[in-house]
Design a protein around this nucleic acid. Sequence first.
DNA 1: CCAAGAATTGAACCACCGTTCATTTCTTGT
DNA 2: ACAAGAAATGAACGGTGGTTCAATTCTTGG
Lengths: 191, 191
Amino acid sequence: MRARLTASRERIIDAALGILAEHGYAGCSVAAVAERAGLATGSVYRHFPAKADLFAEVFRTASQGEIDAVTRAATAESTAAARVRAVIETFAGRALRSPRLAYALLAEPVDPAVEAQRLVFRRAHAALLAGYIADGVASGELPAQDPELTSTAVVGALAEAMVGPLAAGVAGPDTIGGLITFIHRALGVPS
Amino acid sequence: MRARLTASRERIIDAALGILAEHGYAGCSVAAVAERAGLATGSVYRHFPAKADLFAEVFRTASQGEIDAVTRAATAESTAAARVRAVIETFAGRALRSPRLAYALLAEPVDPAVEAQRLVFRRAHAALLAGYIADGVASGELPAQDPELTSTAVVGALAEAMVGPLAAGVAGPDTIGGLITFIHRALGVPS
DNA sequence: CCAAGAATTGAACCACCGTTCATTTCTTGT
DNA sequence: ACAAGAAATGAACGGTGGTTCAATTCTTGG
């Protein structure tokens, strides 16, 4: 019974994530989510007090997956420059592989309550980068700078450069390479 | 009569802009706009076929004002580095002076139809910067790069770095200076 | 000054969608 | 097998807010 309950909860989240990845947030009515999960509309409210809570969790889960992937790629490297490169490649690569989901997580209009979760997502990426940048500054690999500010700017540059390709469906031939050069320069990585 | 008509239209746009700057897009119901313009709700529809059309024009007008201000500041300079600096200072300075409006133009959740106009806004800034960057590359002031990509990344970095301060109400002591350094480095401006 | 037509009004309309809840179905311990 | 309680159902509700339109007011040419 307990298992069935948590299974339903999982199915709801998966269904929401699926619709998010296929039709964006606009397609995510509670009725649509419930139908895809094989439940009645009202049953969603046995698991989540409100739609915003459901999608806060969906965004949180999806974001954590992205953060984990990026972190995994970065920790395999040892210099700040290589770590930042790994973050960019992983972030952009995954976004281009799931463009609809990436757009929803990054830029699609959502309820204010869910928007808050998106900020958490971006801040988590920025915090990760800030750590690498601070390490690089401490070790002398990078010039002095405010890691909070530069990591935020890096996340903004990354996200903005992705939104166009995500909307258009394809990225230019060397979008990722160009971004790496841009960001390495911006952080003062020696060439 | 003709004059009265266009005057009403102007008043509607001004009212919408005013509410946008004071209460954000969330406060911009058609009824609220009409009341501030001194008209009945229904009269708005004599001038605009739908709310989205009204706000597309509002966003377009406001954006054009920002673009003009930034362009004016940049054309007073002669090197690519100085022009980019002028763009950053003007953009950020104006945003911090009208934080609510800037937030609405940059990041607040809006209808998809209005969102499209926001992309135009960001693209216009990027196009402006792309021109300066391309000139800089052509004259040898800047290293080789794809001006489309780097200008987009610059706009993203700028916008992302502004959203935090705009939400918090204040910018850090040297946010703008830090951004200039970051972006100059990113573009390869010689130090 | 007076119709004729345009402009304005604002209350009513309607569609959408999140949320609720009385009813039904299922699970489980005895 | 049975009762008691939990879980699921889905139709109905309600609030919101964009949009419409018949009634009214204003403008203007003769």
